[in-house]
Amino acid sequence: MSDISHRPQVPGKALLYRMVMPHHICPYGLKAKDLLKRSGYQVEDHHLATREETDAFKAKHDVATTPQIFIAKERIGGYDDLRRFLGKRVADPKATSYRPVIALFAMTALLALAASYAVSGDALTVRAAEWFISFSMVVLALLKLQNVETFATMFLNYDLLARRWVPYGYVYPFAEGLAGVLMTAGVLTWLSVPIALVIGTIGAVSVFKAVYLDKRELKCACVGGSSNVPLGFVSLTENLMMIAMAVWMALGPVGAGHAL
């Protein structure tokens, strides 16, 4: 690829070569076209309409992927290369990110407030706080259940019970989800409380040992097996929330609905 260390002062024409086939339109080609237009470039859009045409283009320009962008007779590269050329951030898929966790807890908090308001006309209630935890448990379980095999494999890296009894890694997300649903409804506390207390306590001890005692750097399986969230505060918080909810429900009636 040519040197692209500087951007032209005045946007001109850009040549874009992208796959546009009857059964496949390259999404990165569409994103590149949109980004070029928003950056002020006139886009000369060339469609690669067949696999043979695409392969021939790759061979001619000695590239492995499409789309490919050319500006001022320089090959810029693909979509990520275009973003770099325009001085925009390119996300690292392997980088640590707390965004999934922040999004999850933000949405469950808003959902809890909305549900409380719909039921009582007041968003800031004890029930809203309870629902925030139970909704979070359900969504966290859902993320794990998207790929139980991957979750269970990651879970074995640090969970003390799963290391002794491997099937526990497969049981855990179902147990967490069940406890969350029952706690949301405020029913069968004789079942939901022990489940949350047991899995929350084992999880908290396991995370504390792995991170704070053994000083291990691991990925957290708390939001599913494909995340890049580091094991530590987030997973510990998840488990402590389950413990707190279990203790709260064991000590008295749920869903009082009083304002905080």
Rank of each mutant, 00 (worst) to 15 (best):
L236E: 05
K219P: 00
C220K: 00
N239P: 10
A221I: 03
A246T: 08
A221M: 07
S226P: 00
N228F: 00
M245R: 11
S235F: 02
S235Q: 12
L218M: 14
G225E: 03
M249V: 02
S226T: 11
V247E: 02
G225D: 06
F233I: 12
G232Y: 06
K219I: 07
M242V: 04
I243A: 10
C220N: 13
F233Y: 11
V229P: 01
V247C: 03
L236A: 12
L231R: 09
M245S: 11
W248P: 00
W248M: 11
N228L: 00
M249L: 13
G224M: 04
M242N: 11
V247D: 02
G225M: 02
A246H: 04
L236M: 14
L218S: 05
M242T: 02
C222R: 01
M245A: 15
V229G: 01
C220Q: 05
V223D: 01
M245H: 12
A244L: 13
G224H: 01
F233S: 11
N239G: 09
I243S: 07
C220T: 09
C222I: 13
C222Y: 01
S235P: 05
G232V: 09
C222H: 04
W248V: 01
V234G: 11
G225V: 09
N228M: 03
P230A: 06
M242P: 03
K219E: 11
P230R: 04
A221N: 09
A246I: 11
M245W: 11
L236F: 15
N239V: 08
N239T: 10
A221H: 09
S235R: 04
M249A: 14
F233K: 12
L218F: 08
G224L: 05
V223Q: 00
S226I: 00
G232Q: 05
M242A: 14
L218W: 06
E238H: 15
A246F: 07
V234Y: 13
V234K: 02
N239K: 09
L218P: 04
E238S: 13
L231D: 10
L236Y: 14
E238C: 13
N228A: 00
L218G: 04
M241L: 15
V223R: 02
L231H: 07
P230F: 06
N228P: 00
M249K: 12
K219C: 00
M242R: 07
S235G: 15
S235Y: 01
S235H: 05
V247R: 03
N228K: 12
K219S: 05
A244P: 03
G232M: 06
P230H: 07
S227E: 11
M241H: 06
L218Q: 12
W248A: 13
C222P: 02
V223K: 00
C220M: 04
N239I: 10
W248E: 04
W248Y: 15
M242L: 15
M241F: 15
W248F: 13
L240Y: 10
V247L: 14
L236C: 08
F233M: 13
A244W: 08
N239D: 14
S226W: 08
S235C: 15
I243M: 13
N239F: 09
